[in-house]
Design a protein around this nucleic acid. Structure first.
Length: 263
DNA sequence: ATGGTGGTCCAACCA
């Protein structure tokens, strides 16, 4: 039975609930993983999602910042969340469904200056990626059927940003971040599923910033949102699609959804 | 070289 999964940094699930419902109606994933929900669990829009068939919901939220959620048409066989870097800032949730473990991450953005000595946010980001890698080794992630998705806030390849040369010193695309991500991929034995279908040097982006108004029109994008699978799931990979159209909707999230289909 | 916008929640932080 095919399984359709989506990941989307919605940049506030309450501000984006209309877009989220529209996307779910059009793309019809079985499961959606959201990041930056920016809402406490007691104010989470459970009813709006249950009304359209996503009856199983795991919200891991807090007020104003961060927050992740998983909403599903299929029941969860297990669910949970983990604290990373000893900061309980709601950046991870996981469920098991159809025998597949699904991990939803929101990696710290890292601030403006790519120097861990002077910028605590950048140091936190690197620590977070390192801790993810040691978790992969400790939990023997590569031996299990796992899908890891989310806003990982790193565009690791030259063709993951609109201008590599110009952005190579910018947070999100520095060599040190790309190296951390490469080690994480290796530690979990993950395949970067989006790049399985859109091989370099094909450009592929999931985020176009708000600050420059023409960013989307000029395709000044970054690939910050990722869908990875462990080796036992590689043979069932059917499709990955970046759904750019949501970025054209009124008052959009700066990120767009990524769809993953396992056949 | 700089600043630009958007969300949360009403000042200032984060992205």
């Amino acid at each position: 039975m095919p399984l359709r999964l989506a990941t989307w940094n919605v940049n506030s699930i309450r501000a984006r609930i209309g877009h989220l419902k529209r996307f779910l109606d059009e793309a019809r994933p079985d499961v959606i993983c959201c990041q930056e929900t920016k809402v406490n669990n007691d104010a989470f829009p459970y009813a709006a999602l249950r009304e359209i068939g996503y009856r199983h919901i795991l919200a891991v939220g807090q007020k104003a910042y961060h927050g992740v959620a998983i909403a599903s048409r299929l029941p969860f066989e297990e669910e949970g969340a983990r604290v990373w870097c000893k900061k309980d800032d709601k950046r991870h949730a996981f469920v098991r469904l159809n025998g597949v473990e699904l991990h939803n991450f929101y990696v710290p953005a890292g601030g403006d200056v790519p120097d861990p000595e002077t910028n605590d946010k950048f140091a936190h980001k690197l620590r977070f990626l390192k801790e993810m890698a040691s978790w992969c080794r400790r939990e023997r992630v590569k031996e299990r059927p796992i899908v890891l998705v989310g806003d990982l806030n790193v565009a690791p390849l030259d063709c993951d940003v609109w201008n590599h040369k110009r952005l190579v010193r910018s947070v999100g695309h520095t060599p040190v971040e790309s190296a951390h991500m490469a080690r994480l991929l290796k530690a979990g034995g993950f395949l970067d599923a989006a790049r399985h279908f859109a091989q370099p040097p094909a450009p592929l982006y999931t985020w176009w910033g708000y600050r420059f108004l023409q960013a989307f029109a000029k395709d000044y994008g970054w690939r910050l949102d990722h869908v990875w699978v462990t080796p036992s799931l590689v043979s069932s990979l059917a499709r990955v699609e970046v759904v750019k159209t949501t970025r054209t909707w009124e008052r959009p999230s700066d990120h767009v959804p990524v769809l993953l289909e396992l056949g």
